[in-house]
């Protein structure tokens, strides 16, 4: 059952990722990316981390992608979607680089031995992804990065307002 689900949703994720790149219209690319994010969320569920899966769908596929779709619809999607200019040879170079990356990364991933890394004994019973444990670790061990994250978001809000504000006529 787990294997079937993995291959089904992994295949959907991979195909929709390829569609993100292959589509000429940006809008359809964004829709394929939403499909990819949702199927990766199902993979998170298979990996027994339900909270991350929920956050993935609500924040990633919900909030961030809606912002993307807003901007795509705000800017004219038809004139800007098909932009000629780069040579077609660049596509071949990109695909070649991708094949090279896969050929060099695959032996490295293959050589990794999971048994060499010691498992954390305190979370044996598969309850790693529970909200209680996540919150406990997030607010004790990772408190400082968490607070710095809020500062980062504040900076981003101010930066976006300054950027997107209509400049006064000079």
């Amino acid at each position: 059952m787990e294997t079937v689900l993995f291959y089904l949703f992994g295949g959907i994720a991979l195909i929709s990722a390829i569609l993100v790149v292959a589509n000429r219209r940006v809008f359809y690319s964004a829709l394929s990316l939403i499909l990819c994010l949702c199927s990766v969320a199902v993979l998170y569920l298979i990996l027994k981390s339900p909270f991350i899966a929920a956050v993935q769908i609500i924040v990633y596929a919900g909030a961030i992608m809606v912002v993307f779709l807003f901007v795509i619809m705000l800017l004219d999607p038809f004139s800007s979607a098909i932009i000629r200019g780069k040579k077609a040879s660049l596509a071949y170079i990109g695909v070649l680089l991708g094949i090279l990356t896969v050929t060099f990364l695959y032996p490295i991933l293959k050589s990794y031995d999971l048994a060499q890394t010691p498992k954390n004994p305190s979370f044996i019973d598969g309850g790693v992804g529970s909200v209680k444990q996540l919150g406990h670790v997030l607010f004790s061990e990772y408190l400082l990065p968490f607070e710095m994250t809020s500062v980062l978001i504040l900076i981003a809000i101010i930066g976006v307002v300054v950027l997107a504000k209509r400049q006064a006529s000079k």
């Binding site: 993100v20 990109g94 896969v102 695959y106």
Partner: peptide
Amino acid sequence: MLLFTVGAVGFIIKK
């Protein structure tokens, strides 16, 4: 790895 490679290739070839 495959998803990452597709993303990287797309970043290179998209206009």
